[in-house]
Computed example of a mutant assay.
Amino acid sequence: MAGKLSVHALDTARGTGAAGLRLTLRKLAPDASEPFCFVLDDDGRATLLESAALTVGRYEILFHAAEYQRANGLELPEPPFLDNIPIHFGVADATSHYHVPLILSPYGYSTYRGG
């Protein structure tokens, strides 16, 4: 079975998927990588890595939350309470599906390992 890393971001202020939310992905260890940029689709989803590209290690997804919220007309203070949201996680089995949902509002967020 081939592994996969995917994300889904939900914008609770608008009640929709976070279409257009920009994020960066990078591997932290054991071999650090340069960040890769992604933009979420119309449903707020993206597949970040598949098959051999997903390897055991520690990763970071950085969601550019304030940029996204401002682009969608939300007035935020300067500096915003949540600017960029880093999610650090480990991949122990590169043949599994790792799904990282983000539930986003201007003043809070939650995440978990989805399926």
Rank of each mutant, 00 (worst) to 15 (best):
S33G: 05
A52I: 13
A52D: 14
F36D: 13
G73Q: 13
I85L: 14
L40P: 07
C37T: 07
G44A: 02
L25M: 06
K27I: 03
D42T: 12
A52P: 00
L25K: 11
P35F: 12
A32Q: 12
A71G: 04
L74M: 11
K27R: 15
V56I: 15
L54I: 04
L48I: 07
E75N: 01
L48T: 04
F63G: 02
R45A: 15
R70W: 12
A29R: 06
G44N: 04
D42Y: 02
P80Y: 03
R45F: 15
A65H: 09
I87L: 15
N72G: 04
R26M: 02
Q69P: 00
R45C: 14
N72R: 13
C37V: 09
P30N: 05
N84C: 06
P80V: 04
E75R: 12
A66S: 15
P35D: 10
R58L: 06
L76Y: 10
S33D: 04
I85K: 06
T55M: 12
C37D: 05
E67R: 14
I85T: 10
Q69N: 04
R70K: 15
D41V: 08
L49N: 03
Y68V: 10
A53E: 06
L28K: 11
E60H: 00
G73P: 14
S33N: 02
L74A: 10
R26N: 02
L48F: 05
N84Y: 02
A66M: 06
L54M: 01
I87Q: 13
S51A: 07
E34D: 11
F63T: 02
F81Q: 11
S33R: 01
Q69D: 08
R70P: 12
A29Q: 03
L48Q: 11
N84G: 01
A53L: 05
R70I: 11
I87H: 13
L76S: 13
E60K: 04
A32R: 09
P30Q: 08
I61W: 02
R70V: 12
G73F: 12
P80W: 01
L49P: 01
I85Y: 08
D41N: 14
I87C: 12
P86H: 10
K27A: 12
K27Q: 15
G57N: 05
I87V: 14
E34M: 07
